[in-house]
Computed example of a mutant assay.
Amino acid sequence: MRNRRLWIVTLAASIVAVTAGVPARADGGFTVAHWAMNEPSGAQVMYDSSGYGLNGSIGGEVVTARDSGDGYGYGFGRLDPDTPPTHPQHLVVVPGYAALNPGDRDFSVSLRLRTPYQFGNVIQKGQATVAGGSFKIQIPGGKVQCWFRGSAGQVLVTAPRPVNDSRWHTITCTRYSTGVAVAIDGVVAASKAGPTGTIANNWPLSIGGKTNCDQVEVGCDYFAGDLDWVQIDAAGHDW
């Protein structure tokens, strides 16, 4: 399962597309980055196995080589929301490579997580008001939200059922020219129509929370739980 390609989705996407204007999948997709998260204990580098070398830095508070049941992943400890001090070592940070920007492409972020908690930003590039737009996956109330903000607007999609049941779940958030969809365990859970346009910023991609926060005026929204892998796919624009 770890190395399985997750370029969205199944026949269920076609059903959602009828009402939301979201296509079943993007043609010509390719993997931009795949972080297997199988580094040994104490590792400081998260390696990208896609062939593009988009490696990241693992913070000292992130537990590597955590048993996922069918391999190894990363563990993120619980931190009280909006409570100082900040914990930058709680994050995994990938430099702001241009390839990690959606641009105007169909763009998909997939990951496998396990958590008993109901808060946290799992992955993001950019924050709410940064120039160039941003995207993120978060789990307020334990429900997966996919958010994409670009030159043409923003779209937020929320899955109807929570995933904070301490079981492993595979999540895929996909941005199309016509909207955004979220799939959980291979089934489309929700979608919403609306253009987002071009998304491109100079910010790093962060896993486990925000990079620019103070826990007073801006909460860091630290994720708590386990991650098994993260993958990003994209397609050439054909809008």
Rank of each mutant, 00 (worst) to 15 (best):
V32E: 00
A13R: 08
S206Q: 07
G42C: 06
V22M: 05
A65M: 09
W203C: 07
V180F: 06
A131K: 07
L205M: 15
D238S: 14
P116Q: 11
A189C: 03
A12I: 08
D185H: 11
V157Q: 01
H90E: 00
S191Q: 09
N202G: 15
P85K: 13
E39R: 14
G59P: 04
S50N: 03
Q154H: 13
R112K: 14
W35A: 05
G73Q: 04
A36F: 07
E61A: 15
G133A: 09
I232K: 07
E39G: 10
P23R: 11
V188M: 13
Y74I: 02
V122I: 15
W147C: 02
Y222V: 04
H34V: 03
G197N: 04
Y117E: 00
S57R: 13
D226N: 12
D82K: 15
F30W: 13
Y74L: 14
P195E: 05
Q215C: 12
G28N: 09
A65E: 01
N201E: 02
C220L: 06
S151F: 12
V130C: 10
G53I: 08
A17P: 01
D67T: 08
D233V: 12
A193I: 01
P204D: 05
R167T: 03
R175A: 12
S68C: 12
I8F: 14
S50H: 10
H34L: 12
C146R: 04
A26S: 11
V94M: 10
P84R: 11
P40H: 07
R112T: 02
A26G: 14
